[in-house]
C-alpha cells in the first residue's frame, strides 16, 4: 500500500492542475482528483504493468470529467460544440475585459477536444502516444487537433505575423 502511495503522489500536482484548467474551480477540481485517485487505488491490480502510470491516471481522470459533463447536459452542449471559437467558456464572465487577452481565456475559447491535447502535450508533457491513449483517439488525430488548436490560439493572440513577441501581448 505504501508502494502505491509512493507511485501515485508524484502525479498529484499535475492531475490537480489539469483538473483545475478544465473546471476552473479549485474545490471541484480537487473533488475530481480525489475521485480519480480513489478509482486508481481500487483498480490498481487492473492497470497494465507495462503501461505508463501517468497516462493511466490522466485517462481515468479525463473519463471521470467526461462522465461529469454528461451528467450536466447543458454544459456538454456548450463544451462539445465545435463552432464556438468566439464564445469564451466558464470563468471568463467574472473576469474583466482586459483579462480576455489572457492566454487562459483564449484556451477556453477553443473546442474542448483541442484544449485537451494542448494541455496534455504542451503543459503536462505527455508524449503524443500517451495523449492518444488518454483520449482514446488515434495518434494522427492528436497531431491534427494540436496543430488546429495552436493555429486558433495564434490567431486569437494575433501572433501570426510573427514579428511581435507573444509574451508581451499576453501579460
Amino acid at each position: 500500500m505504501d508502494e502505491i502511495a509512493a507511485l501515485l503522489e508524484p502525479h498529484i500536482p499535475a492531475l490537480r492542475r489539469y483538473a483545475w484548467v478544465l473546471l476552473r474551480d479549485h474545490e471541484a477540481a480537487d473533488d475530481l482528483v480525489q475521485d480519480c485517485l480513489e478509482r486508481a487505488v481500487s483498480r490498481w491490480r487492473l492497470r497494465r504493468r507495462d503501461g505508463d502510470l501517468k497516462a493511466w491516471l490522466f485517462a481515468i481522470q479525463h473519463n471521470l470529467f467526461i462522465d461529469g459533463l454528461r451528467r450536466r447536459r447543458r454544459e456538454l452542449l456548450r463544451v462539445d460544440s465545435d463552432q464556438v471559437p468566439d464564445i469564451a467558456a466558464h470563468g471568463v464572465e467574472q473576469e474583466s475585459r482586459a483579462a480576455l487577452r489572457d492566454i487562459l481565456a483564449c484556451l477556453d475559447a477553443l473546442p474542448a477536444e483541442q484544449r485537451a491535447v494542448i494541455l496534455l502535450v504542451g503543459v503536462e508533457d505527455l508524449s503524443y502516444e500517451e495523449a492518444a491513449r488518454v483520449l482514446d483517439i488515434p495518434i494522427g488525430t492528436v497531431m491534427s487537433r494540436l496543430s488546429r488548436g495552436r493555429e486558433r490560439l495564434r490567431g486569437m493572440l494575433d501572433a501570426g505575423s510573427g514579428a511581435q513577441p507573444v509574451l508581451r501581448r499576453v501579460k
Binding site: I103, L104, L107, I118, G122, V123, R150, L153, R154, L157, A159, G160, S161, G162, A163, P165, V166, L167, V170, K171
Partner: peptide
C-alpha cells in the same frame, strides 16, 4: 515565425 509563435504560446501557457 509560426513555429516561433507556437513555442512562445506554449511557454506562456506553462
Amino acid at each position: 515565425a509560426r513555429v516561433q509563435a507556437d513555442r512562445a504560446i506554449r511557454a506562456s501557457l506553462r
